[in-house]
Design a protein around this nucleic acid. Structure first.
Lengths: 221, 221, 221, 221
DNA sequence: ACCGACGGGACCTCCCGTTGTT
DNA sequence: AACAACGGGAGGTCCCGTCGGT
C-alpha cells in the first residue's frame, strides 16, 4: 500500500501524483478539522476522489491522516528553515521563526496552513484519540526543539548569544511563546497577538541573549 | 431542559445533584477526548448513567458539551483567582497564574484537568467542528485576558509595574507563554518545560515590568 | 451484551422475547444462506428489526450467527431425542434418528430447518471462513456422536445389539449415512434418497447389529 | 470472453496457459473458501494476477467460480474413474471410489482438494446464494450417480452383483455414505471416520450385493 | 496480455436521540 | 428520575467491475 517512491524519483506516475495531491489536500483539510476528526466523506469532498479510489492509495483513514500530518509537519519545517536562511545572526534566526507563522500579509485563510500550527494541533488532538498521533506529535516537536537548540548553540559559539544561556530552556521558551501566540492569533483571527509576542521575544533577546555591548542593532518590529 | 437552579438554592434535589455530577465527570472526560469528539457512549460509561437519564437533563450531546466546557472554564478561572489571592504584588500575581497550571506535585494525572487547559483545548478544537465551541472558547479566553489586563492596570496604578507598559500586549504575552508551556508540559508529560517558561517570565518581569529600582526582591524559580 | 437470562427465568422481559425471536428467525435464515454468508440486511428483513436495534442485543453479526447456530443445533438435538423416546429398542432408536430428518410429510419448505442439517451445514461452511464456526460445528457433531455411542452401548448391554459391535465406528457410520442422505434429499428436493438410505440402514441393522436369532421383527420401511 | 480452446488444441498460447492456471488455482481456493464466498481479492492473491488481467479471461467473478467448480468436479471425476480402472469386479470398483477420497497417506492438506469434496461443498453452498451453483451441483451429482448406476448395472450383468439389487438406491446409498464420511473426515481432520465407513460398505457389499456363494474374496480394510 | 487506477455501491458497526416502562 | 429498547442514519472498509495505458 506504500506507493510512496517505488519507481525511481524522476517521472512520477499518475498514481503517485494523485496520491501526493490527496496528501496535500488532506493536510489542509485535517489541520482544520482535526487529523482524526476529519471524516472520509470530507476527504472525498476535499480531494474530489471517491472512496474506492482513496483506499487504493491508503490502507485506512488513519494511515492517510498520519501521512497528512507528516506532510504538514514537513511543510512547516521547510518554511521555518527557509525563514532562518534569510538571516546570519542566531538572534535574528530565532525571530524569523516566529515570523514564519505570521500570515497577516497573506490573509488568515491563506496557505499553507489554515488551522494553525500542525504540531500544536496534533499535540492537542493526540490527547483525545490516538496513540500514533501522540508519537508523531512528539517527534515533530522534538525535531523543532532540537533545531532551536542547534541555533542557540551555534549562536553561542559564534558569540552572538551570551555564553551562560541554557539552549534547552531557551528552546522551550521560544516554542511556548510562538505556539501560544499562534493559538491566540488563530483563535481571534487577529495577528496582533502574534505581534505582541514578537515584541516580547525581541525584548527578551536584547535583555538576556545578546551579548551586553552588542545591543539593539537590528530592525525592531 | 435547563434544570440548573429551579428549586431554590438551598437544598439541591436529587436530580440537581445528578446533573452536577454528570457535568463534573463530563468535564474530565471531554477535556481529554475533545468536547465534540467525546461520544455519548463514552459519557454513559464515564458517568454510569444511561442515555435515557442523560437526555432528561440535557437537550443534546452538544448542550452537555457546552455545559461541561463552561464548568471546566469556571474551575480553571477559580483556580487562577485563588492562586492570585495569595499575593499582593501584581507581578507575583502574574507568576502565580502560571503556577496554577503546574500540577507537578499533584501528578500529571491529577485533578482537576487531565488533558491540559480547557481554554486552549477548546480553542484548538473549535477550529474543527463547531461554531458554538468557538464562541465559548473566545469568551473564556477573553475573560482571562481581561483579568490579566486588570491585574496589570492595577499594578501600574499601585506603582508595582512601570507606567509605560501596555496592559493588553502584556496580557497576550503572558497567556501565550503560559498556554505554550502547558502544551509542552502536557505533550511530554514533563513539567520541566513549564519551569523553563516560569524562569523566562520571571526574568521578563524583572527586565520590563517592575520599576527600575525595585528589581529582584522575591523568590526566584 | 449477553442479555440471555439475567432476571430470573419466569417473566421474560420484552427485550428477552425480542432477542429470542431474533435468534429463532436467524436460525432459519442462516441455515439457508450460510451462518457467515447471511448479511445484516437480510437479518433486518427476516426479523423486522432495524440495525440499531439488533446491535443492542448482539455485539456483532458473528455473535448473532454463533447464537443462531447454537439454537439450531439445540433444536435438532431436541428433535432427535424426542424421536428416540418413541422407541425402546436401541435399533429402532437408531432408525428413528434418520426419520427425524425426514420432512417429506411436512413438505420440504417446512419447519424447522429449511436448508438441511445445521450441523453439516456449519461443518462445510466452517472450512470457508471462520474458526469459531469450526469449533461449534465440531462440538455439535461430537455431541451427536456421543449420543449415538450411548445408544449403541445401551443396546449392547440390553442384548438388543450384538456384543462385538464397535460403538464408535457404528456411530460414525450412522452419522455419515444420515448426513449424506440429508444432503442428497436437500440437493434434489427429493426425499426418496433419504428413503434409500433408510432401507440400507435397516438392512445393516438386521445384518450386523441385531442378535442373530432376533432378526426381522419390526416394521420395515 | 470464452477463450477456452480457440486456436486449435496443439500449442496452447500464453493466454490459454494463464487462463488454465487461474482456474486451477481458483479451484483450490474456492473449494476451501466457498465458490461464491471467495472474493476477487483472494483470487488476485492466490493467482498472482491482477484484476485487469483476470477480467480479460473471465466475464465476471461468477463465471470464474463456475469454471473453477467445473474444473474441480472434472478432477474428482477423473480421480474416481482412475481408481475404478484399477479393478475389474464391480464391487471392488465401488469400494475404490471411497478410497479415492482417502488422502490419509498424502496428508489432509494435500492436493488436489483441500476443503473436501467439491460436489458436496457446492451442494451445500448452492442453498445459500446462487441458482447457477445449484444447477451445476445437481449436474455434477447426477453425473456421479449415473456413473454408479452404470457400475452396478454392469456388475449385475456380469454376475458380480445379485440380480435383485436396485441400482439407483444402491448408488444413492454409496454416495450418501461416502459424502458423509468425507464430511466427518474433513471436519475432524481425521480419516478414521472414513475408514469406519469403508468397513461398513465392505460389509454391506458382502451382505447384500455379492452373490451368495462368492463371499469374501477381496482385501479387507 | 496484463497492470494500475478509479467509481460507485454494499457491508458492518456505532452513533445520536426518542419512546415506552418501571 | 432513570432505564431498556429501538429507529434511522453516518462512518469506515472493502467489494466488484471498468477503463486507460503499455
Amino acid at each position: 500500500m506504500n506507493h510512496g517512491s517505488t519507481a525511481s524519483g524522476l517521472q512520477p506516475t499518475k498514481g503517485q501524483r494523485t496520491r501526493a495531491e490527496i496528501v496535500r489536500r488532506c493536510a489542509q483539510l485535517m489541520n482544520r478539522h482535526g487529523y482524526m476528526a476529519a471524516s472520509v466523506s470530507q476527504v472525498v469532498q476535499a480531494t474530489g476522489i471517491q472512496k474506492g479510489g482513496l483506499y487504493r492509495h491508503f490502507a485506512s483513514r488513519q494511515a492517510l491522516a498520519y501521512e497528512a500530518l507528516d506532510y504538514a509537519v514537513a511543510q512547516i519545517r521547510e518554511r521555518l528553515l527557509r525563514a532562518m536562511q534569510g538571516h546570519a545572526n542566531a538572534c535574528d534566526q530565532l525571530l524569523a521563526m516566529l515570523d514564519a507563522y505570521d500570515f497577516s500579509e497573506e490573509g488568515i485563510d491563506a496557505v499553507p496552513f489554515v488551522g494553525g500550527c500542525p504540531i500544536m494541533n496534533s499535540a492537542i488532538e493526540s490527547d483525545h484519540a490516538d496513540g500514533g498521533l501522540l508519537e508523531r506529535a512528539r517527534a515533530a516537536m522534538q525535531g523543532w526543539h532540537e533545531l532551536l537548540v542547534r541555533v542557540v548553540d551555534a549562536g553561542i559559539r559564534r558569540g552572538e548569544i551570551r555564553p551562560g544561556v541554557d539552549p534547552h530552556r531557551t528552546a522551550s521558551t521560544f516554542i511556548a511563546c510562538i505556539e501560544g501566540g499562534v493559538m491566540l492569533a488563530h483563535l481571534y483571527a487577529d495577528f496582533s497577538h502574534l505581534q505582541a509576542v514578537r515584541g516580547h521575544l525581541a525584548n527578551y533577546i536584547d535583555d538576556r541573549l545578546r551579548p551586553a555591548g552588542a545591543a539593539g542593532r537590528r530592525r525592531q518590529s
